[in-house]
Design a binder for these strands. Structure first.
Lengths: 119, 119
DNA sequence: CCCGTACTACGATGGCTATCGTACGAGCCG
DNA sequence: CGGCTCGTACGATAGCCATCGTAGTACGGG
């Protein structure tokens, strides 16, 4: 079977190990409106999404930059799938490192969104 | 009695109203190690502390800067008291705006501190 | 094989920011 | 008053960072 060897594509991306994820880095990543929006959308959909799925108010170069910041801070995991790059929240890792934090942050963001229109 | 007029000192500092506090700003404020440390210490003590109470690895100028960032982001409240400037967490305001967030962040910071020595 | 789509890499740029040093203002104490 | 402590203001600096445009790579389909 050797089903344990995925290697669907030769391109793979560097992710921080759980022990390397820093709270300050996570907070910094989420302190940008564009990135916070990305994370909120990922959480809402619940599944990995391609970069092109998002309709962001910045160019594609900048979008790439934001996704990289999220990946390098440990917030998301990125995997190539054909030409698409799928982005998924590292929910389990974050939950283990900072229990309850992600949900709390998402709730806070939702709370704020309701207050400032954009329900 | 007109006990409602404090005015203990002519100097008072501008604070954001609750409606002006933005989650992104709070996260950005807490994404700096020095500032996160300040907030953790304020939370641990539970009372307002003077700037000079903290033993930070930066000069006094920089300390002033960090306290201002915390105040302008809505995380702390600063009040002069004689020559000292007392700093207190805006726990109630933050709790109303982002329920549970502050405690969650503090727990995450504590969790990380345990993991990376400094228990 | 050619093309289109998805994303990246690189370089430039302007703005923010963490840091410092020095000089100063505000209150307290002797 | 004179000096002390606390904290600020201002200017400088260096580094980071969000943004863009252009050019390029990787993959899949006709």
């Amino acid at each position: 079977m050797t089903t344990a060897a995925p290697a669907p594509s030769s391109r793979d991306l560097p992710h921080p190990a759980c022990g390397e994820i820093r709270l300050e880095g996570v907070l910094h990543a989420l302190s940008d409106p564009v990135r916070l929006r990305i994370v909120r959308e990922l959480a809402a959909e619940g599944v990995a999404l391609s970069c092109s799925h998002f309709d962001l108010p910045v160019t594609k170069s900048t979008t790439t930059h934001h996704f990289r910041v999220l990946r390098e801070s440990g917030v998301i995991r990125q995997v190539y799938e054909g030409t698409a790059k799928m982005n998924g929240l590292r929910r389990d890792d974050l939950e283990e490192l900072f229990p309850g934090l992600l949900d709390c942050l998402l709730a806070a963001a939702a709370h704020q969104a309701v207050r400032h229109g954009e329900g």
